[in-house]
């Protein structure tokens, strides 16, 4: 009983509850047809949101105003870069992944440079850089029709006993990220900076180095996501990352990470990503029109956030 109570005191539990509820609603509608398939499809799709969500979470945890709006453009460009480098050949998969990571790293580093050296607020800096990245992608990727190497495409959708391999790997990655956040100096630094940047500086924390590393990490995760998405959807595309602008932020917040900074929540990212994917699946099985689907998604997101409530001021 008390175990249950502590479980429900955790902010991330609600995102899993929400995910379970929409899944139930969907399979009730289909009279339990394809319940398992729906779940493994959701897992496979949620992976892509989780990867960028984790990056976004680290950035948001840096404190008020920190956000990365360049993820969609980043995903688009990295998908094109990685597919070009792989060039459809299985032997070049690793090289392509490294290229995608490097591309993302460059974007993250450039973002931080704009924020730090030019003192542009992150929201505008990453937005402006995303415009530029988009142009680069359009100019560079025009007419690019390279298919992913068959081995790579196969890997992104490989399943063992109904569980997508990529999802399992991503779970491991999330666990690692959670440990890094709480028990490494860099992780602690991110949390400290998010709570009080001045205090962090005076406590001897390397504020600039940590922020730079965080934006670079977020960029790299965006790049990786781009490569994986190109593998999963059989090719690079400028618009490949578009939906991740909103969903990367939404999963972070629905998952219980504080937008005020300093408090991060990794399990919640998974719960929220599953919730969003299953919500779409549910609305699709109901066969509603595009307008109703958007309306319902929006209302449910607002309702979930309102129900979870914000941070109460201490005293």
């Amino acid at each position: 009983m008390t175990a249950l109570k502590t479980l429900f005191a955790r902010p991330w539990i609600w995102s899993f509850v929400g995910a379970a509820l929409v899944w139930l609603a969907a399979i009730l509608f289909t009279r339990f047809n394809g319940a398992g398939g729906m779940l493994s499809a959701a897992l496979a799709l949620a992976v892509f949101t989780v990867i960028v969500g984790v990056g976004q979470m680290f950035v948001i945890t840096l404190g008020p105003g920190n956000i990365d709006l360049s993820l969609p453009a980043n995903i688009g460009l990295a998908s094109a870069v990685s597919m070009t480098v792989m060039n459809g050949s299985d032997s070049r998969i690793a090289l392509g992944l490294v290229a995608a990571l490097a591309c993302g790293f460059a974007i993250g580093a450039a973002n931080y440079l704009l924020i730090r050296a030019l003192r542009i607020p992150p929201i505008i800096a990453t937005l402006s850089s995303s415009f530029i990245i988009q142009s680069v992608d359009i100019a560079y990727g025009r007419g690019l029709q390279i298919k992913p190497p068959p081995g790579f495409a196969g890997f992104t959708e490989m399943q063992i006993a109904g569980i997508p391999v990529l999802a399992a790997l991503t779970v491991l990655f999330t666990i690692g990220a959670a440990i890094a956040l709480q028990r490494t100096i860099t992780g602690r630094s991110v949390l400290a900076i998010g709570q009080n940047m001045r205090a962090a500086y005076f406590a001897g924390i390397k504020v600039e180095r940590t922020c730079a590393a965080t934006y670079a990490l977020c960029g790299m995760l965006g790049g990786l996501d781009g490569a994986l998405l190109a593998g999963y959807f059989r090719g690079a595309n400028v618009d490949l990352g578009n939906e991740y602008l909103l969903s990367s932020i939404a999963v972070v917040v629905i998952g219980g990470t504080s937008v005020a900074g300093g408090k991060a929540n990794l399990p919640g990212v998974w719960g929220a990503a599953l919730f969003l994917v299953l919500l779409l699946t549910m609305l699709n099985t109901f066969g509603v029109s595009a307008g109703v689907r958007l309306l319902a998604t929006g209302l449910i997101i607002v309702a979930v956030i309102a129900a979870a409530g914000g941070e109460r001021a201490l005293r």
Partner: peptide, 24 residues
């Protein structure tokens, strides 16, 4: 710091973490 709230305290952390942050 003299101005605890703005230059010193990490408000979401425990006392222990607030002390340890200087010696990680």
């Amino acid at each position: 710091a003299g101005d605890r709230q703005s230059d010193g305290i990490f408000p979401q952390w425990s006392i222990a973490r607030n002390i340890n942050v200087g010696s990680l």
